[in-house]
Amino acid sequence: MIDRVITSGTFSLDGGTWEVDNNVWLIGDAREVVVVDAAHDAEAIAERAGGRRVKAIVCTHAHNDHINAAARLAELTGAPIRLHPADQVLWEQVYGPEVAYTPLADGERIPVGGVALEVLHTPGHSPGAVCLHAADQGVLFSGDTLFKGGPGATGRSYSSFETIIESIAERLLSLPPETVVHTGHGDSTSIGAEASHLGDWLARGH
């Protein structure tokens, strides 16, 4: 069972602020869920979870628009916040050292509702960016690493075009081409559809 809540707010970094709509994904069953990227509106996310136990709030990375509802949602649900520690500097821009999270590790498996979400460390959009792969379901939750039409943005602090392309090529394009990719913003896509664009991305990046 995969649910989506679209929330709206702002993304701020390097002195700029932009209006954004975020995809918040809830994965699980009728009893429990994992929330991927608690963005903007903790109450709306908690409402979608309903009476189900929230096992974890997983942050695909620590840009403010993906974590700014995490602390409040943790208060509402009692769920732990999970984040790759390589994004500590971005986390502290939002929460300082006062709000704690439990570190994610590459290769870790997060079980929920009969589904296993494998953590894939995919740096580039940010140092600690991760994707979550539900292999048995043929689904990837890509955060801002991979979108319909190309990789996530790398023009701001703590990002690298070369690194994100390496992450996508080595960690994501090896997945089955029919894998559905649920993104942090916008429409879903597939690994096969995005693999066909790889040469175009490389050409644009150089």
Rank of each mutant, 00 (worst) to 15 (best):
R31Y: 14
R48A: 15
R204S: 11
V54F: 10
P80N: 04
L26F: 06
E170V: 04
A135G: 02
E194T: 08
N68G: 05
L90D: 12
S12K: 13
S160Q: 11
D14N: 12
D187K: 12
M1I: 01
I27T: 04
A100H: 10
A116W: 11
L172T: 06
L202Q: 15
A193R: 11
D87K: 03
T102R: 14
Y158L: 15
W25V: 04
S159C: 03
A203L: 13
R156C: 02
A71D: 13
G149C: 12
I67N: 04
C59V: 00
H206S: 13
V58C: 06
T179M: 02
P177N: 01
I191E: 02
P111N: 12
R204Y: 07
L198A: 13
P80R: 09
V99Q: 14
R4Y: 00
L26K: 03
V33C: 14
I168T: 06
A71K: 10
A42Y: 08
T154K: 04
S157R: 14
P123L: 11
I27K: 06
D106G: 12
S12N: 11
P80K: 05
A134L: 02
P176K: 01
A135N: 01
V36E: 02
P97A: 15
M1W: 10
L140R: 12
V139I: 15
V54C: 13
S159K: 04
S142C: 09
D41R: 08
G113N: 15
T102E: 15
T7R: 07
G113Q: 15
R171V: 01
G199P: 14
D187R: 12
T10Q: 15
R109N: 06
M1H: 13
S196D: 08
T163S: 04
R72S: 05
F161R: 12
G205P: 00
R4N: 03
A116E: 15
H182I: 00
L73W: 05
P177Q: 02
I67M: 06
V181C: 05
V58L: 11
P127L: 14
A42K: 10
D136G: 15
A79N: 07
K55N: 10
I81E: 06
R48P: 05
M1P: 15
T154N: 08
E43C: 02
A203E: 13
D106T: 02
T122Y: 06
E75F: 01
G114R: 14
A46C: 12
V5M: 05
Q93P: 00
E19N: 11
R171P: 05
V24K: 01
W91D: 07
L76M: 11
G50P: 10
P151V: 15
A46M: 05
W18V: 12
E178V: 00
V58Y: 09
A129V: 00
H185P: 01
L73P: 02
T60E: 08
L120Y: 09
R48I: 09
N23I: 06
H121T: 04
A193T: 14
F11D: 09
P111M: 12
T7K: 08
M1V: 06
I45P: 03
L173S: 03
V58H: 11
P103R: 04
L173Q: 10
D21R: 14
S8L: 01
D136L: 07
R31V: 14
L120P: 15
G150P: 12
L76R: 10
D106I: 06
Y95E: 08
F11L: 13
A129R: 06
E43L: 12
G186V: 01
Y158G: 01
I191N: 01
A69N: 11
H66N: 15
E118G: 08
